[in-house]
Simulated scan of single mutants.
Amino acid sequence: MTGRNILVLGGAHVDRRGRIHGETAPGASNPGSWFVEAGGGAFNAARNLARLGHAVRLIAPRGGDSDGELVAAAALAAGVEDTPFIFLDRATPSYTAIIERDGNLVIALADMELYRLFSPRRLQQRAVREAIARADAVLTDANLPEETVAAIAKAARSAGKPACGIAISPAKVARFRTALPVLTCLFMNEAEARALAEARPDDPRQWPDILRRAGLSSGVVTRGRNAAIAFDATGAAMLAPPLLEALGDVTGAGDALASGFLSARLDGQSLAASLRQGTAAALIAVRSPLAVAEELEPELLARVVALVPEAEMLA
């Protein structure tokens, strides 16, 4: 695995997760506990990529508060070069989620208003333009406004750099629509793919053709415990993840898959091998109570990859 320079722009905020201790009782008080850590799709991916040996630079909006200090400390601990846009009079964005005992998400609330201030004009700053020029790849997420996501993808394409995206949620994935023609790859789950393509195929093997018709040249669609689909301009692959007896927390699993997949692609691996490595990274993430597994590193990832079956190439 060869370390690359990766520029990440997007969500870096505070995650607050409440975990229910017993069976979930909707509409009632549920005994549980709270856990607070730094999060955000882009930031989770940035920390994973840094743990895999890449030189990662993060550019994200942040408030001048204690939550912002928590994010800064997490970036430092992960070895991410942290260069935020700081708004001293604003609150750092936050994501609050309720998790069931088995690790699955019940409901979440995202307070992301600050990200609206990350406008395309920010990309004209010399430091940002130079960061794009130095990067081997650019990664963003749908926490940013649609026009900013499109401008990031176009700036990367103009510089000859691959630009990848993380969908974040069914409500936000539409922010990638304008960017699809110039986006190198988009990572999404099946609910996000349905929202983006406005389609619900009977057979998941239809996702590559559906998303290509929507304008996306390459992407990965995860499906929870079911087989994930990856495709590019030349083919498609499907891989069913190994079953786990217990989940730590599914938060961050998709971001880990994106990190493992992107790392493999930058290392010259095939579509199928990249999907296999992304799946292995997700398996490490879901066994951890944290959004970014502290134990993730190249040697562990290689060992887990060996436990993941080969991907099936689709006709």
Rank of each mutant, 00 (worst) to 15 (best):
A155T: 15
L123C: 10
E297Q: 14
A280L: 07
E294V: 08
A315K: 05
K172I: 12
P181D: 15
V221N: 03
N104Y: 11
G64P: 06
T178R: 12
P84H: 14
G268Y: 12
R16A: 15
P208D: 10
S94A: 13
V14R: 03
L114P: 02
A191Y: 00
R4G: 11
E297R: 14
L139R: 03
A78P: 01
V36R: 15
L211N: 06
G260Y: 00
R134C: 05
F231R: 04
C164L: 06
P181Q: 11
V71C: 09
L70M: 14
A282F: 07
G27V: 06
I210V: 08
A227D: 15
T234L: 02
A50Q: 09
L243S: 15
D136A: 09
A38Q: 05
A315H: 07
G10V: 03
V182F: 00
A227Q: 11
T178C: 04
S33T: 14
A133R: 14
A285N: 05
S263Q: 09
G235P: 07
Q277G: 07
A237R: 00
A199V: 02
G10T: 02
A133E: 14
S274A: 14
D102I: 02
F43R: 01
L271G: 01
G252F: 00
M112S: 12
D232I: 01
L216K: 01
R101E: 10
E297F: 14
T279M: 03
P31E: 09
D202M: 09
R116F: 11
G39H: 04
I132S: 11
Q269G: 13
A133M: 12
L183W: 02
R265G: 04
R57T: 13
E295F: 05
F43T: 01
A55Y: 03
R157T: 08
G27H: 08
E299A: 12
E23D: 14
A78R: 03
R16M: 15
A174V: 10
G41E: 04
D203V: 01
F176K: 12
T2H: 08
I6P: 00
I168S: 12
L266E: 01
